[in-house]
Simulated assay, not measured.
Amino acid sequence: MRSYCIRTATPDDLDDARSVMLDIVYEDFGTGYVPRWHRDIVDLHQAYVAPARHTLLVAVDERDGTVAATAALDSRGPAHPPNPRHLAERYPSGRTAQLRRVYVRPEHRRRGLARRLVDELLDFATADGGYRAVYLHTDPAVPGAEAFWRSLGKSVHDEREEPGGGQGIVHFEVPLP
Rank of each mutant, 00 (worst) to 15 (best):
residue 43 D to Y: 10
residue 32 G to V: 03
residue 133 A to K: 12
residue 56 L to I: 00
residue 117 L to Q: 03
residue 64 D to T: 09
residue 159 E to A: 09
residue 96 T to H: 14
residue 90 R to L: 12
residue 46 Q to D: 14
residue 139 D to F: 11
residue 118 V to Q: 08
residue 144 G to P: 00
residue 80 H to D: 07
residue 130 G to H: 07
residue 55 T to F: 07
residue 120 E to R: 10
residue 106 P to H: 06
residue 53 R to P: 02
residue 67 V to R: 15
residue 55 T to P: 09
residue 48 Y to S: 04
residue 150 R to L: 14
residue 138 T to V: 08
residue 41 I to R: 09
residue 92 P to D: 05
residue 153 G to S: 10
residue 66 T to D: 11
residue 61 D to V: 02
residue 118 V to T: 06
residue 33 Y to A: 11
residue 116 R to Y: 02
residue 37 W to V: 10
residue 64 D to P: 04
residue 136 L to K: 08
residue 39 R to C: 08
residue 101 R to K: 15
residue 51 P to R: 06
residue 65 G to V: 01
residue 78 P to F: 02
residue 33 Y to N: 09
residue 135 Y to I: 00
residue 149 W to V: 03
residue 49 V to R: 13
residue 55 T to C: 14
residue 88 A to M: 03
residue 149 W to F: 06
residue 55 T to N: 13
residue 51 P to E: 11
residue 37 W to M: 15
residue 49 V to Y: 09
residue 148 F to G: 01
residue 119 D to P: 00
residue 87 L to S: 05
residue 74 D to A: 14
residue 74 D to G: 15
residue 168 G to A: 04
residue 136 L to N: 07
residue 138 T to N: 08
residue 107 E to M: 03
residue 139 D to G: 06
residue 118 V to D: 08
residue 42 V to A: 15
residue 90 R to Y: 06
residue 115 R to L: 00
residue 165 G to V: 01
residue 110 R to A: 10
residue 76 R to M: 11
residue 118 V to R: 07
residue 80 H to G: 06
residue 69 A to H: 13
residue 168 G to P: 02
residue 66 T to L: 11
residue 144 G to Y: 00
residue 131 Y to Q: 04
residue 113 L to W: 03
residue 151 S to Y: 05
residue 42 V to C: 13
residue 83 N to M: 03
residue 112 G to P: 10
residue 100 R to F: 06
